[in-house]
Design a protein around this nucleic acid. Structure first.
Length: 315
DNA sequence: AATTAGGGCAACCGCCATGTC
DNA sequence: AGACATGGCGGTTGCCCTAAT
């Protein structure tokens, strides 16, 4: 017999969270803080498993979560960290501020593993794929309704050992940016006066809550810059009146300020590079330490290096 | 226009580590 | 020492959306 489930599943809500449930969870955590997940749902008035609450908070509702597409720089860092750490998503996420392990894991499985494979690299070992494996990949890509040819790749050609692939980048609607929790706000927006406790950002596939600050500037400044000219607000009749929720919808991704974007990307790039340099430094220190410690030579250097390196994250 | 199949991702599940009694 | 509670992690599932047919 395995251990008992974390909570009785009988009568509990499952599946996607509603805006009302989100509101209850946020409200409770704002008042009482995180922790005590088991008892939290009852106290917060939620018909959810404590684990589900924790997951929702950690992966979605936390105010410090960074939203929007993963940048090429983050892409690169994730790949390099994965080569060092393997599927230790929480460790990888820990070095990407504002990103969650779940998000990175999903991104790896849906994008990066394919990207590496298409570049002729085994995503598990980060080593070059063998000739036979490359041929197999090429065969698969020539099949009718192949996922790769269908959406991900525009062209694919072999040049010696290198596989060059031009990917069609799919642009996702960004997840909302959370500013900080606030109780109320009054806003003039598109000639509409709004009074609300919360804002919800709706995309085509899901609805999200957006906590807001008191000043309108704060909303705009913390949202992706290219969204600024494409935001509109409307009242939401589908949500409990008690919540006084408003819907925020976003338009197409036009109107972005290129100069500002470049500046932000440069800063991110520098930050990520700095983080990676820190890792390399850690590896070096640990490597030297291992050599001092195990100079008899009865320890596998590669293993010792990686293990001490990863250990450093666990402290 | 309707149907189908694949992609993306939030949510769930089971297991493990740690803390407390 | 062992039982239990709790938090955390990685793997997997299932739903929704959309492109292809």
């Amino acid at each position: 017999m395995g251990r008992a489930p974390c909570c009785s599943k009988v009568g509990l809500h499952r599946g996607p969270w509603t805006t009302r449930e989100d509101a209850l969870l946020i409200k409770y955590i704002e008042a009482h803080g995180e922790g005590q997940w088991r008892s939290m749902p009852k106290k917060a008035g939620l018909l959810r498993c404590g684990k589900s609450c924790r997951l929702r908070w950690m992966n979605y509702l936390r105010p410090d979560i960074k939203r929007g597409n993963i940048t090429p720089e983050e892409d690169d860092l994730i790949i390099r960290l994965h080569a060092l750490l393997g599927n230790r998503w929480s460790l990888i996420a820990g070095r990407l501020p504002g990103r969650t392990d779940n998000e990175i894991k999903n991104y790896w499985n849906t994008h990066l593993s394919k990207k590496l494979r298409s570049q002729g690299t085994d995503p598990n070992t980060h080593k070059k794929l063998s000739e036979s494996e490359l041929e197999k990949l090429a065969k698969n890509c020539n099949r009718k309704r192949c996922k790769h040819t269908k959406r991900c790749m525009k062209t694919r050609k072999l040049e010696g050992d290198e596989v060059i692939v031009d990917r069609i980048t799919k642009i996702h609607l960004p997840k909302p940016v959370r500013v900080k929790p606030v109780i109320s706000m009054t806003r003039n927006y598109s000639n509409t006066s709004l009074e609300t406790n919360n804002l919800s950002l709706h995309t085509t596939s899901a609805s999200y809550r957006l906590s807001t600050d008191e000043s309108e500037d704060n909303i705009i400044l913390n949202m992706p810059s290219w969204l600024d000219n494409n935001v509109s607000l409307e009242t939401n009749n589908g949500v409990d009146d008690d919540d006084h929720l408003m819907m925020m919808t976003i338009g197409s991704s036009s109107g972005r300020d290129q100069d500002e974007v470049v500046t932000v990307q440069d800063n991110n790039n520098q930050q990520l590079e700095k983080l990676y340099e820190e890792y390399l430094q850690l590896i070096k220190v640990d490597h030297d330490h291992d050599h001092d410690h195990y100079h008899d030579g009865d320890v596998d250097d590669g293993e010792a290096e990686l293990d001490s390196f990863t250990e450093s994250f666990l402290i």
